[in-house]
């Protein structure tokens, strides 16, 4: 029942909003992972980011798609928690893990099952349409699963359509630039630098109008 609800939510409502109300300009969609286990790392400006990324992959992969999202925010109240866990299908991540516990246990479990994880290494939506420093959780995860490819994606425009703190969606065409998959090469700092560089390179592809 919940699985059907999730399917309908993404097949009808999300696709209507993403493809008709918004509209996407996708470059190199074919570079997105075709099977799990895999990681997709995108910049984060809006709640819409997750929905857009999930609608880029075919519907039959929906059961495999798991966005990683902040536990404190999405499990904050019961209704939101139910929606986040069952309809969106998030893997909750603690932003302030307790000593001795493994904050990445949920992600590791999902990768072992062969899921595709969506991560936002900026850690928060932050200032809309500004790229913040990446957090290193993704490097720790990749170190544990060195064979899992990490596909960088740059999103633009969704922060204009629905920025943090706004409830009203204003239509804009949005850009989605997919980069070449990165692989673990032995050290965390090097991996993080490579991921940030790849995302910045994707951002440079676009010519975005000012928005202040």
């Amino acid at each position: 029942m919940v699985r059907l609800l999730r399917f309908l939510f993404f097949a009808v409502l999300v696709r209507l909003v993403v493809l008709v109300v918004l509209g996407l300009n996708v470059r190199r969609r074919e570079w997105l992972p075709k099977a799990g286990p895999a990681l997709i790392a995108a910049n984060h400006n809006s709640h819409l980011d997750t929905l857009v990324l999930m609608s880029l992959l075919p519907l039959e992969m929906l059961p495999r798609l798991r966005p990683v999202a902040a536990m404190d925010y999405f499990l904050g109240n019961r209704l939101l928690a139910w929606f986040a866990l069952h309809i969106i299908g998030i893997i909750p991540l603690s932003r302030r893990p307790q000593r001795g516990s493994d904050p990445l246990a949920g992600c590791a479990e999902a990768l072992e099952r062969g899921d595709i994880l969506l991560l936002f290494p900026e850690g928060s939506r932050g200032e809309p349409e500004r790229l913040a420093r990446f957090k290193t959780g993704i490097a720790h995860l990749t170190e544990r699963f060195p064979q899992v490819p990490v596909t960088p994606v740059f999103l633009h425009g969704l922060g204009k359509a629905l920025p943090k703190g706004e409830g009203l969606l204003v239509p804009f065409f949005c850009d989605v630039f997919v980069g070449e998959a990165l692989h673990w090469e032995g050290d965390r700092a090097g991996f993080m630098a490579g991921l940030e560089r790849a995302t910045a390179r994707l951002a440079d592809e676009g010519r975005f109008p000012s928005w202040d």
């Binding site: 509209g23 809309p128 425009g157 204009k160 920025p163 706004e166 009203l168 204003v170 239509p171 804009f172 065409f173 949005c174 109008p209 000012s210 928005w211 202040d212």
Partner: peptide
């Protein structure tokens, strides 16, 4: 008209303060 206006608003520089104004324009 909607597609054309959306393309135009996505192309031109807009002010962050005008999000709701653009909504009224739509």
């Amino acid at each position: 008209s909607f597609l054309a206006l959306k393309e135009y608003f996505s192309l031109i520089p807009t002010r962050r303060a005008d999000r709701r104004v653009l909504f009224w324009a739509y």
